[in-house]
């Protein structure tokens, strides 16, 4: 078994030509990136070429909401409507939870939720910067060991609000890390369908 031998096929495989070609490739790539790709993809236009070619408009359009496409079919009331509306056994709960933390401390605060149940939340740490990961670990079903699902990560955050529909039955919540040396109390307001909650 012989290895393929590129040397025979190439025309000018000298050290100088290889280095020149590599430099040329890097140069052309840089020019294309700066004038076309970065303006289109990220709206970064250091040369102004992307703007003058009208390419930056593509990037600008990306941040706008997409125009409404075809209307979704009207859901049939007879079948599948339970995926839009569901009843629960217990009324929803609303709580304001205060979580005191020392400087540099880390902790997890979780809510036990069944698959498909909903949570609305707002949290704030005032002006104290936090690292957080909004995530969940399943407690039912066949999952690999140590499986968890990451919803959202924030670095240097001081708060957030949003909603969650539990993708599986388990413990859903936040890992918080106080990035400062100062103690802080996180104020967490939640409404929704959960059975229990607490620090882990």
């Amino acid at each position: 078994m012989t290895e393929p031998e590129p040397t025979e096929q190439l025309q000018l495989p000298t050290r100088k030509n290889i280095l020149l070609s590599t430099a040329l490739a890097a140069l052309v790539a840089t020019v294309i990136l700066l004038t076309i790709i970065l303006p289109v993809e990220y709206g970064i236009d250091p040369t102004g070429v992307g703007g003058s070619l009208g390419l930056s408009a593509i990037a600008a359009a990306k941040t706008q909401p997409a125009p409404a496409q075809e209307l979704p079919e009207a859901p049939q009331a007879t079948a599948g409507s339970e995926q839009f509306a569901q009843s629960t056994d217990a009324p929803f709960r609303t709580e304001t939870i205060e979580i005191p933390m020392q400087g540099d401390e880390e902790l997890e605060y979780k809510f036990q939720m069944s698959k498909g149940q909903m949570l609305l939340y707002t949290w704030s740490s005032g002006s104290t910067e936090m690292y957080f990961e909004f995530h969940a670990e399943p407690t039912e079903g066949e999952y690999p060991e140590d499986y968890y699902m990451s919803y959202q990560i924030g670095d240097g955050s001081t708060g957030g609000h949003g909603t969650l529909v539990a993708p599986f039955t388990g413990n859903h919540g936040w890992y918080f890390l106080n990035l400062t040396e100062n103690p802080v109390t996180i104020k967490l307001e939640v409404s929704g369908y959960y059975t229990s909650h607490g620090r882990l």
């Binding site: 490739a25 890097a26 052309v28 790539a29 294309i32 990136l33 970065l38 970064i44």
Partner: peptide, 16 residues
Amino acid sequence: VLLMTAGFILMGYQLT
């Protein structure tokens, strides 16, 4: 050389 250029573009695109 073109292939290498495409590779460099992918790298620059993703790193940015």
